[in-house]
Structures are given as structure tokens and as C-alpha cells.
């Protein structure tokens, strides 16, 4: 029985990299699913069944992580010894402090029935979305750079960027939830 791939990238037969061809990865995901899914081994030996289960769960985990740029970046950081850090326990990035404070105020007002706060939340949401878009472009550029140079310095920058993006993502979610 062959052993399991060492990491999420190896599942797809690629070396750890960040700028990925997602349509191609998805095609691979389907091909591998059809080949290794436990349903294909219901009548096989116990060892083969176990391998199908282990491989397919790894495949599903890998596809889930790699198709999401944020999760993919964090995964690669982690496997290079950079702990991403839990956004909940991390303080907000300093340049966002004021924004966060204002958003929280508006959310609080909305909870107490102040309908006017909606406007403030909506405009905050727009700013967050713009920030997110800018970060996405920066992130994609960092992805390409890392694939070319593989330097720890690039990963350090990536870590800062992803933490910030995660934080903004939470703000977007909170604002959207409040408005819906």
C-alpha cells in the first residue's frame, strides 16, 4: 500500500507554491475523487478501503484549503514555521483602530434601535470592501514573488498582509450581518 502524500500540495503532485491555476487544480480534484473515493472501494480489502478513506479526506482537506487564497497562504506559512496567529486574540492593526472603534459605535447604536447608524455602517462597509480589494491585489503579487524567490522575508510580509486581511474580512462580515 502506497503511503499518503506528505502535504496538501503533494496531493495534487505540485511543490509548495502560492500562485495556483485553480481551474486546473479543480480538474485534478475531480479526477482524483473519481479514482480514490471510498465508494469505489466498497468491495475492496479493508486496507484498500482505509487508504481510500485517508487519501480522499486528505484530498478534500487539501482542495478546501488550496482553493481559498487566504487559507492557502496561512497553510504555507504554517508549514514554514510561521504561526498565523488567531485573529480573535490579535489586536486590530493599529492603522485600523479608529475605523474599528467607529464601526463598533455604529453597531452598538443600531442594536439600540438607532436606524441612522445604518448609513454609517454602510459607508464603513464600502471602505472595508475597498481595502480588501487592494489587499487582494497585493496578496496576489506577493504570491507570485514568493514562488519566484522563496524568501522568508516575503513570507513575513505575507503574514502581516494575511492577518490584516483576515481582520478586515471579519469587519466586512460584521457590517454585512448588521445590515441584512
Amino acid at each position: 500500500m502506497s503511503s499518503l502524500p506528505a502535504d496538501y500540495f503533494a496531493v495534487f503532485g505540485i511543490s509548495p507554491s502560492l500562485a495556483l491555476d485553480l481551474p486546473e487544480l479543480q480538474r485534478q480534484f475531480y479526477v482524483l475523487s473519481k479514482q480514490f473515493h471510498p465508494d469505489r472501494f466498497a468491495r475492496a480489502s479493508a486496507a484498500e478501503q482505509q487508504y481510500a478513506l485517508d487519501f480522499t479526506s486528505l484530498l478534500n482537506d487539501a482542495w478546501r484549503v488550496l482553493r481559498d487564497p487566504q487559507a492557502r497562504g496561512e497553510y504555507l506559512l504554517k508549514s514554514n514555521g510561521f504561526e498565523a496567529g488567531d485573529s480573535r486574540s490579535n489586536p486590530p492593526p493599529s492603522e485600523l483602530l479608529e475605523e474599528v472603534f467607529e464601526l463598533n459605535m455604529a453597531l452598538e447604536e443600531l442594536r439600540h434601535g438607532d436606524g441612522e447608524a445604518r448609513g454609517a455602517i454602510a459607508s464603513a462597509l464600502e471602505r472595508f470592501l475597498a481595502m480588501r480589494e487592494a489587499l487582494d491585489a497585493d496578496r496576489d503579487a506577493l504570491f507570485v514573488r514568493y514562488d519566484a524567490n522563496r524568501e522568508p522575508e516575503t513570507l513575513r510580509q505575507l503574514r502581516a498582509l494575511l492577518n490584516r486581511r483576515r481582520y478586515i474580512e471579519n469587519l466586512v462580515r460584521d457590517a454585512q450581518q448588521a445590515l441584512s
Partner: peptide, 8 residues
């Protein structure tokens, strides 16, 4: 909504 089998 994670595809199963899935693990952590």
C-alpha cells in the same frame, strides 16, 4: 458544507 470525508 465541507466535502466528506473530511478531517482535522
Amino acid at each position: 458544507n465541507s466535502t466528506i470525508p473530511a478531517s482535522a
